[in-house]
Design a binder for these strands. Structure first.
Length: 855
RNA sequence: GCGCGCUUGGCUCAGCGGUAGAGCACCGCCUUCACACGGCGGGGGUCCUAGGUUCGAAUCCUAGAGCGCGCACCA
């Protein structure tokens, strides 16, 4: 193992990234050995970064956390399965490809194998088929991926780069479609025409997980509904008068004495004179507004609940583009006591957006006298698509769903089974699962993504027959139903009566991301790999996507494998800017990761990241990076000192050396158990504190002895102890500072430190014949510090000679001191040292005359 | 509204039942012999508040405040 050291004259950090990146790649240091059995493997489900974005310090932060664990596990002897993925699926890539190549996707077009985009995008976008569009995406993202890979390598991520995947590539599409077909066969996936949350700008359904609430101004409008039988009105408050035409009932709480007499009676809507019943439902809040509300199809998800549970009819007015659609009053479903007046009131609203329609309706209600008071402004929370600009509407459409509600208890149990780091992040998952209010809508009316592998028959009259559903054989996957043809049909029959059409939708990106373990582990494809890697060990990710990525991945494994997808979830926090706000690109904060890595060194930046504990939001702080860089520098210099002399071999016998090794053994135990518990910050903290004391106290105490001032045996003891300690410390630091540690390791050891065995306390104790006396080392350090203080107060250099020192302390501590007396005197340059009994440590000194002072 | 986290020196944080800690910043001192990309020494804190448990509380319990976050907030 140990060879004669080759220590550079002036060690430097510069250039270590390039040197070791190349060496690790050449030697295959991080290559996954797939012959190892499952319990010798540590499998990590790495988050695939979105390639159409750019990497920022937040990525550097959380990916470093993962790498710390990977490196620790590898040194512990586990074969680390650590592939990297690229997320090129979804809207951001869709937009980027459109602009870059000057194309737009038209799923109705056939695939053109010869298509090439123009060199420069034209003014008019060229329409291309979905498969052509996806080809362009893959082509563009390959370039992005190179940049990302270079940064990750420079940061020192110990990834096996021979195993990368892309979420839009064929293998991922295959897994995604296969998993869908399996769910479909078992009834866990189903299609339904139902009211769904809908973004009117993107013109697609969205899922609960993609919603966010925003505070918006609104206003209560008090409207008068005339009772159908006789005189009197019912007053209701609404924030959405523009939906009056869609009103199908009024609702109050069943216990509300004010409205109990009205249950079962009916009223007429203002303007449209539609007769609607007054019904009771416990969701109605007597405290809100007038205590009785109008139910519209559909103003919000409560309306959907009321509509479903009270079995009310549908009168939909909001269209997919967010405008009000045409209605024929008096026709079936649109009955009115005065159809002519209703039509006259409604017609001006057709084609208006909700906002414009509201102003018009208010105008009409004011004129008719049904608006009982001026609108009362309020602010309230409105649901938005997280990427959207206008409030979501609820539009009835045909969508695919995965069952979640039926599995709520099972999913909660999975959450308890999963080991969370930190533990308290489980609460977020439970909040989310308990708050689920519907099955997961997984279809999107977009172009770029994984298509549903489904075709439908076309009836003789040209209508799509959704009951006649056709799916491909599993062996055919992946397919694109917009260009592939179901068995027994020809392309000529596409869209023809008696023929077929493909399902036009694509899957939610989370529907593909949620099978990342199945993609990387070779589910249904590479059964050997699957058996060695699944269920995986660790899912690392940030806390903001617990409800999306983490939740959906747990769901998919629960449904497909009846297991967790991984045993541990390591949750990273966010990087906050110095003002404690979430760091974001829009802030104009142009700190590029590569710039930081170059300025502070990858080890320095990693040090900063490692100081951010699991789940903890952490301030962006170049000060910490500087400290990390200084630590790396110190490691170089301390190693140079320790290895700088030919070591006399010999037993470790000196009390100071034995005490050091005892403390070192304890450190190894503490760091190891901390890392096993994913407490990488604590392990670093302890190792770092030990290392600085090793440098500042221990090395100073033994410096003279190791130079041979007290004989060869004393020197051999010091040399052996400091070399063993250095070997252990370098290995303890290796996950954090992979570059400088491998550099130092290469001076005297063969092979990479990253494949070296993780140190053990047993290894350290085996080198020391007897246990060290911790008090001896402690007293040595305290006396040395007191001598330094005396020199500092006397404003003399640390090398100044002390003619005579008196050390006073308790008998027990003085006895311990005798073991370390010679080392302390050497370190303090003390000529004569006497001890006296006392009740606590006190040191007095007399300095030697300074040579030049009297001349 | 429900839940989670945080609150310790100027700053960033560790400690989580036994005499208040680190780094940075600050002040002073020290350069041939591992390191000035440095070293040594020093000053600085009623550990958010109020109760309680305990021989003993920064640490455990209860209540509250402030900050941050998650979920739900629907007429």
């Amino acid at each position: 193992m140990s060879t004669s050291p080759h220590v550079p004259d002036s060690p430097a950090l510069e250039g270590l990234e390039a040197k070791f990146t190349a060496r690790w790649e050449g030697e295959g240091t991080y290559r996954f050995d797939r012959t190892r059995p499952r319990d010798a493997v540590y499998a990590i489900d790495t988050p695939p970064p979105t390639v159409s974005g750019s990497l920022h310090v937040g990525h550097v932060f959380s990916y470093t956390h993962t790498d710390l664990v990977a490196r620790f596990q590898r040194m512990r002897g586990r074969e680390v399965f650590y592939p990297m993925g690229w997320d090129d699926n979804g809207l951001p890539t869709e937009r980027r490809v459109q602009n870059y190549f000057g194309v737009r996707c038209d799923p109705s077009l056939p695939y053109d194998p010869a298509f090439q985009p123009p060199d420069t995008p034209g003014k008019q976008p060229i329409a291309v088929s979905r498969p052509n569009f996806i080809e362009l995406c893959v082509r563009l993202t390959v370039e992005d991926e190179k940049v990302f890979e270079h940064l990750w390598k420079h940061l020192g991520l110990s990834i096996d780069w021979s195993m990368t995947y892309a979420t839009i590539a064929k293998p991922s599409q295959r897994v995604s479609q296969l998993a869908f077909l399996r769910l479909l066969a078992r009834g866990e996936a189903y299609q339904l025409e139902a009211p769904t949350l809908w973004d009117i700008d993107f013109k697609t359904a969205v899922a609960q997980a993609e919603l966010e609430d925003r505070e918006m101004p609104g206003a209560y409008h008090r409207l008068a509904f005339r009772k159908a039988s006789g005189e009197g009105v019912v007053e209701i408050d609404t924030t959405r008068p523009e939906l009056l035409a869609a009103c199908v009932a009024l609702v109050a709480h069943p216990d509300d004495a004010r409205y109990q007499p009205l249950f079962g009676t009916a009223v007429h809507t203002p303007l449209f004179k539609a007769q609607v019943p007054i019904v009771a439902h416990p969701l109605a809040d007597p405290e809100k507004g007038s205590g009785i509300a109008m139910i519209c199809t559909f103003g919000d998800i409560t309306d959907v609940t009321w509509w479903r549970e009270l079995k009310l009819p549908v009168r939909a007015v909001i269209q997919a583009n967010g405008t009000l659609g045409p209605v024929t009053w008096g026709s079936a479903g649109w009955e009115s006591a005065d159809a002519v007046a209703a039509q006259a009131a409604y017609d001006p609203l057709v084609g208006l957006s909700a906002k414009k329609a509201q102003a018009k309706v208010v105008e009409l209600l004011t004129a008719s006298g049904d608006l009982l008071a001026p609108p009362r402004p309020i602010t309230h929370h409105v649901k938005f698509y997280e990427k959207g600009d206008r409030p979501l509407e609820i539009v009835t459409s045909r969508q695919w769903f995965f069952r979640t509600i039926a599995h709520r208890e099972g999913l909660l149990a999975r959450g308890r089974e999963l080991q969370w780091h930190p533990e308290y992040m489980r609460a977020r998952y439970e909040n989310w699962v308990n708050g689920l209010n519907g099955d997961w809508c997984v279809s999107r009316q977009r172009f770029f993504g994984v298509p549903f592998p489904v075709w439908y028959g076309v009836r003789a009259d040209g209508a799509i027959d959704y009951e006649r559903r056709m799916v491909p054989a599993e062996s055919q996957l992946p397919i694109d139903p917009s260009t592939d043809v179901p068995a027994g049909f020809t392309e000529a029959q596409r869209g023809q009566p008696g023929g077929f059409v493909g399902d036009p939708d694509i899957m939610d990106t989370w529907a593909t991301s949620s099978v990342s373990p199945q993609i990387v582990c070779g589910w249904d494809q590479d059964l050997d790999l699957m058996a060695r890697t699944f269920p995986m060990d660790l899912r690392p990710q940030a806390h903001d996507i617990i409800r999306t990525w983490l939740f959906s991945t747990v769901l998919r494994a629960h449904l497909e494998h009846d297991s967790l997808p991984w045993r541990h979830a390591g949750i990273s926090g966010w990087v906050l800017d110095p003002d404690r706000k979430k760091m974001s690109k829009s802030k104009g904060n142009v700190v590029t990761p590569m710039g930081l890595l170059q300025e502070y060194g990858s080890d320095g930046v990693r040090y900063w990241a490692a100081r951010g504990g699991p789940g903890v939001d952490t301030a962006f702080d170049v000060g910490q990076m500087k400290i990390g860089r200084r630590l790396a520098m110190k490691l170089l210099n301390a190693s140079k000192f320790v290895l700088g002399r030919e070591a006399e071999s010999g037993a470790i016998t000196a009390p100071v050396d034995l005490a050091l090794l005892s403390a070192l053994a304890d450190l190894v135990d503490e760091a190891t158990s901390a890392l096993e518990a994913y407490e990488y910050t604590r392990a670093l903290d302890r190792t770092e504190a030990f290392f600085w004391s090793f440098c500042d106290d221990y090395l100073e105490l033994v410096k003279s002895r190791r130079y041979g001032d007290h004989g060869p045996e004393a020197a051999a003891s010091a040399n052996a102890a400091m070399r063993l300690t250095l070997s252990v410390l370098v290995r303890l630091f290796a996950p954090y500072l992979p570059f400088v540690t491998d550099e130092v390791w290469s001076w005297w050891q063969s092979g990479s430190v990253h494949r070296a065995p993780w140190p053990t306390a047993a290894e350290v104790r085996a080198a020391a014949p007897v246990a060290g006396d911790a008090m001896a080392l402690a007293v040595a350090i305290e006396v040395t510090t007191a001598l330094r203080r005396a020199k500092s107060e006397a404003k003399v250099g640390m090398k100044a000679g002390i003619a005579r020192a008196v050390v006073r302390d308790t008998a027990e501590r003085l006895a311990a001191f005798e073991q370390v007396r010679s080392d302390v005197c050497a370190a303090g340059n003390v000529r004569e040292l006497v001890t006296e009994a006392g009740d606590r440590l006190a040191v007095e000194v007399v300095f030697e005359p300074v040579a030049g002072a009297t001349a």
